[in-house]
Nucleic acid binder design. Structure first.
Length: 193
DNA sequence: GGCCAGGTGTAAA
DNA sequence: TTTACACATGGC
């Protein structure tokens, strides 16, 4: 397939992206929730607010009484405050166990948490736990359509398409998803959703 | 000033 | 199973 060739071509055009932009595993998780249907610039503001009060540590985040205020710049702050609490509680209890699970087992657990859908779950699996799973987002679908790679319907159709046409490799999956986002931002408006 | 951003849950047809 | 809608802020 030419999925792999396209990857190399994107890598040449945009360079290595080194995603996810975060210092710790927990910060990746927080960012994954906050970025749901939200521009990353807004997420950064929220994350910086959390960092200022040291709430990028799970125990501290759970104790923050003003969590909604802190994450306000990222929007949907009522829902996201609740979602952050839920995933944080899960994380504190299950981080060690999660490291040992296989990727689909972990996915099942994450999807059971309210507010964690497939894209968020997969972002966490790939970027926080570094297990190979291909993250699909709106850009990925546009990318596939634009290059006539694949026309699917469901999230997992796209995920499986990439996973079948690439080596099952964490670094490639991380980089490819990041490159697709870079591509999408550059050529925004090129193709209608 | 409207449109949109690294989605998800819920309800109704 | 599919479609519609709420959820909210900030940049362009």
């Amino acid at each position: 397939m030419r999925v792999h060739e396209l990857y190399k071509s994107l890598l040449r055009e945009f360079g290595k992206q080194n995603w996810w932009p975060a210092e710790t595993r927990f910060e990746v998780i927080v960012g994954a929730v906050l970025t749901q249907n939200t521009a990353w610039t807004n997420v950064e503001k929220a994350i910086n607010n959390l960092r200022k009060v040291d709430a990028l540590k799970p125990e501290k985040l759970l104790k923050a009484t003003n969590l909604k205020e802190l994450i306000k710049p990222a929007g949907f702050y009522n829902q996201k405050a609740e979602r952050l609490r839920l995933i944080t509680e899960w994380f504190l209890k299950n981080e060690r166990k999660a490291e040992k699970m296989d990727r689909m087992e972990l996915r099942k657990e994450l999807l059971a948490i309210k507010g964690i859908g497939k894209e968020t779950a997969d972002s966490i699996i790939l970027y926080a736990f570094e297990k190979p799973i291909f993250v699909v987002d709106a850009y990925t679908r546009r990318f596939c359509r634009y290059y006539n790679l694949f026309e699917g319907k469901e999230y997992d159709d796209y995920r499986l398409f990439f996973e079948k046409n690439l080596p099952l490799d964490v670094e490639i999956f991380k980089e490819y998803h990041a490159l697709i986002v870079a591509w999408g931002k550059k050529y925004r408006g090129l193709l209608k959703p």
